[in-house]
Design a binder for these strands. Sequence first.
DNA 1: CGCGGAGACCTTTTT
DNA 2: GGTCTCCGCG
Length: 663
Amino acid sequence: MSPHIRYEEELNPQQYAVVTAEDGPALVIAGTGSGKTRALTYRVAYLLDKGVDPRSILLATFTNKAAREMLCRVEGLSGEKARSVLGGTFHHIAHLILRARGYRVGIERSFTILDREDAESLINQCIKEFMPSRDKRVPRGEVLAAVFSYGVNMMKNVENVIEERFPHLVEFTDEIKRVATRYQSEKLKNNALDFDDLLYYFFRLLKDCNDLREVYSSRFRYVLVDEYQDTSRIQAEIVDLLSSLHRNIMVVGDDSQSIYSFRGANPDNMFTFLEKYPEASVYKLEINYRSIPEILELANASIQCARKVYPKRLTAVKPSGELPEVVYVSDEFHEARYIADNIVELERDGVPIQEIAVLYRAHYQSMALQMELTRRGIPFEVRSGPRFFEQAHVKDVLAYLRIACNPRDELAWKRVLKLYPGIGSRTADKVWSQISEYPDPLAFFLNNIPTVKQRTGKRSLEHLLQVLKAISTVEMKNNPSAAIAAVINKGYDDYMKTHFVNYQARKDDLNQLVEYARSFPNMEQLLAEMALVSHASADELQESEGARERVILTTIHQAKGLEWDAVFILGLNEGRFPSARALKENPENEEEERRLFYVAVTRARKILKIFIPRASVSRRDVDRLMLKPSRFIQELPPHLYEEVDLSGVFIRNFEEEYDDWSG
DNA sequence: CGCGGAGACCTTTTT
DNA sequence: GGTCTCCGCG
């Protein structure tokens, strides 16, 4: 077999050059739909075929799912050995190595990863302490954002963060500093790391421990990074440290698709790369294989309005098709009906339903459509909104396991304690203060029931003791599925019956969780995966990987890297998209919002329809609120799209719709 | 001190 | 609709 010839047939000359590039740093600047991921995938396969040790390849991607999919395809090309390639998000990689070596920078093996919600509640506790809640003047939400931003931006001092990003909070600088410091120490007390800590401590490990840096940079001889435009400063540093020995690093990205700056993404990484690696080879991928020329032209015109674009000239190779449509509708209900009609029509015309997607800026924009699709019995999958792992019942059950793994996890203890009758937040505090004196609060608890005033509370603690005793054995720690089942059977099931109206649905969720947990060898890995994994719905947990026959509803952020035959984009109105909130925070954000629009448009292969409601229906303004079309449409040359105005055709019954919306 | 009900307030994007 | 907070009862 001569696999190289196969690559040559399947890749264009530019991509082929990327794949077979010699050792050394490489920057791939690639347009949308140009096969960036394909080039990366083939490069990994190429390396494996050349006989490179799979364990020496490190592949950093944006989501764990993306990494899995890529490695699956590599396995198809090069076989089994692909399984030994390490691939995942930076967080994932950091987590793996910190568990093994974190003690070098003061991290215990048994740390908990705080998800967004946990981190927020911890910060809120600290805020309460330094900024009394009575004081209405304190914008708590913004203080919270500032503390987060401090972590995300990895800046040395809080003052800088506040001055640069939250100038209106300058008067609270002292308090915010105290909150941030307290938050740090609370995390340490809890043996807990948040997402930013994961990266920060990993960075410190590589920076401070010369021997470890050498270990990893000599092990990972090939470092490949996808979506480089969305890496943060600290991630770029981590990549540099990991490849410091061999400088054998390949990064792939498209500056026009940088949409995660709110999370610290720094598109300038793309350009500073060349300063750091002047010897790098630069490849440009400018052929677009995805979209028909009409769609690509509209996308190009939109991104031309951006202030700063790296010059690229994307050319389409697909045959010409229909002009994208810009459709005016009366409101979101009309929008929903029209889209539902369109879906039915497309299906009749032979477009598979899973090849249709609806994209939007924010989750709430999908509500009207969800109702309409449900009413009509059109199958759909929502990929935005509340996540499976973040629902109360899932978090409750997992909190028991967190205690078993990390007995100093205060948040988990309090969450669990408060589930029991007779124990509220005061008693939970008291119990915690009694047991947290000891280095292993769990061991202490199992032998000494803390004293509480109420009799029901005491019975509850005895009950809790039984559950914790059952799940903290070595066998249970190595069988998370059984541990979860034990938590449910030993009382959580009863709790759900009395506390949730939708008992059955939640019970079903937990049964799925028990199944899902089977594939994990121990609790720690399960808990880490739950915290780090990107969006997973309850359905996705079941292994049915293949394309299911459903319309996809998703935020644009989550649609990154995906494509469909037909794409509908909702709510192209001023205030919604670009989001008023984003612009208020910083007018500069218009640029990123536009890139977001660009990403949305370029998900479509053949059919693109963009919707502009004329009026809004929302709780706040029961009156018709006139909406303006988005600047992202107005700035486009009109000949690039076909305008369809349906807003006068539809006579709507406002009262009926309103009842629907609220009920 | 726990707990349920009433009412206020929110609703950008996510590893 | 969903979540958080406050308040008053037991």
